[in-house]
Amino acid sequence: MPLKCRAFNCAKSNCRSAGDGSTDASRRWTSMMATVVLTLRVRAARTSRTEVRGALRVNRLSMKLYISADMEGVAGITASEQTDPNGQPEYPQSCKLMTGEVAAACQGAFAAGVSDIVVNDSHWNMRNIIHEELPPQVRLIRGSLKPLSMNQGLDPSFQAAAFIGYHAPVGVADAILDHTYSGESVYDVRINGELCSEARINAAMAGEFGVPVIFISGDQNACADAKSFLPGIEAVEVKQAMGRYSAASLSPQEARAAIKNGIERAVRGLQSEGARARPFSFKTPIRLELTFSSTARADVASLLPGSERPQARTISFAHEDYTTVFKAFRALLVLGGSIS
């Protein structure tokens, strides 16, 4: 039968491409095959890059989130009796309200692709959250005393932190149950001259581990406070405070929906291209000034080695290391709170 042309698949027996491959057509055949091989290699490379990009997307979604949860900033909470575990009839309902908001935050984070969540119960005796009402994969840090208090469990393995149910710092008007760590013994807390909320103090502790705070919920002044030092934070206002003991609050259902959606936005924003969430920190040297509600409390707190007493009710402590400053702050609170 006639020998087919290898280059053009023709059946001409007299085609010059037939024979031993030394003809021009054979050279064209070789060139064409080289082009085909090159094309296949390019396609393979593109496929490989697509697979890598897909893997990177999965890695960005595989993140670990830390949640510190307080109670005063939860929707529906307006009175200290609601937050007091010592025999107050409204307290069990407040635990359910707090748990509902934490659960909503976890649901939103998981929906955004978070793979691991640790929640630190950070109110009063730190035994408030009902664990069985959280998503089953959530780990809960419960009980006190904790060395890092509201920040217990933080470490560099977390990609982000969120604050649920937080409140404004002591001394702020139109803020539900405003205080900073102690509503009874602390009159004022400043670091490097800046009025400090629990959010600011705790964000700096997260910053020590390289963890940015990306979300907060609470009343309007808790949110405003966080925005003042954490640009770009997702803040969800669940109530409008009118004084210290009254507020116009969202319903629990609406507050939870807002928190779920807000934290989902925050997580997705962190994962997006060009996200620039940065850990918060104070400039060094770091100077803490803690003013107590009485001189008697300052008398006892002044026993802390390395502390100074610039004013009758104020104890100061300075150091280059923020963790050391935070631990000194905790020690001063315990000393000052030991006497009325």
Rank of each mutant, 00 (worst) to 15 (best):
G337L: 07
P2F: 07
R190P: 10
T78R: 08
S182I: 06
E194W: 00
L145Y: 12
T39C: 12
I77P: 13
M126Q: 12
C5M: 02
A160K: 04
A34L: 15
Q159M: 11
N14Q: 09
A161S: 13
K64W: 02
R278A: 15
A25S: 13
Q220P: 08
C106W: 08
P135L: 01
S48P: 00
Q107G: 03
A224D: 14
L145C: 07
V36Q: 10
I77Q: 05
Y245P: 00
G21T: 03
G218R: 05
A318C: 11
H167M: 10
G87P: 10
L195T: 02
S94H: 03
E51R: 06
L3G: 00
I130N: 01
L288H: 03
I67S: 07
F326L: 02
C95S: 11
A235T: 04
I191G: 02
A55I: 01
A75Q: 05
V189H: 05
V211C: 09
R244S: 12
L148G: 07
A318D: 02
T323F: 09
G19R: 02
V189K: 04
S228E: 10
F158K: 01
M63D: 06
H179D: 09
N192D: 02
A168M: 10
S13V: 11
A25I: 07
G274I: 07
T291L: 06
L333Q: 08
G153P: 09
E132P: 07
A206M: 05
R27K: 14
A109N: 00
G243I: 10
P89N: 07
S17D: 15
I191T: 00
M63Y: 03
K283W: 07
V58M: 11
K96R: 15
N151Y: 02
S281L: 04
T180P: 11
S316E: 05
Y187W: 12
L65I: 11
R297Y: 03
R28C: 06
S80I: 13
K260Q: 15
I233T: 03
A44Y: 04
E308G: 14
A105C: 13
L40R: 05
V189P: 08
S293E: 12
S293F: 00
A111Q: 12
R57N: 13
T35L: 15
D299G: 03
A11W: 05
T35A: 15
S249H: 06
V42W: 10
V119F: 06
P231C: 02
I216R: 01
A222D: 06
R287P: 01
P147C: 01
F110G: 03
V118H: 03
V325L: 08
F209A: 13
Y166S: 04
Q137V: 01
A318G: 09
P310F: 04
D178T: 08
P310Q: 06
Q152A: 13
G337H: 02
E264A: 12
S293Q: 15
A248V: 14
I176N: 07
N9F: 11
R27Y: 13
I315K: 06
S249G: 08
R278G: 10
G143Q: 10
K227W: 00
L335R: 02
S13L: 13
A206R: 04
G87H: 05
I216A: 09
A79C: 11
G262P: 11
R190S: 08
Y181F: 15
K260W: 00
E90I: 01
A248D: 09
V42G: 01
A104Q: 10
A112M: 00
F229Q: 01
A318E: 15
G113N: 05
S340Q: 12
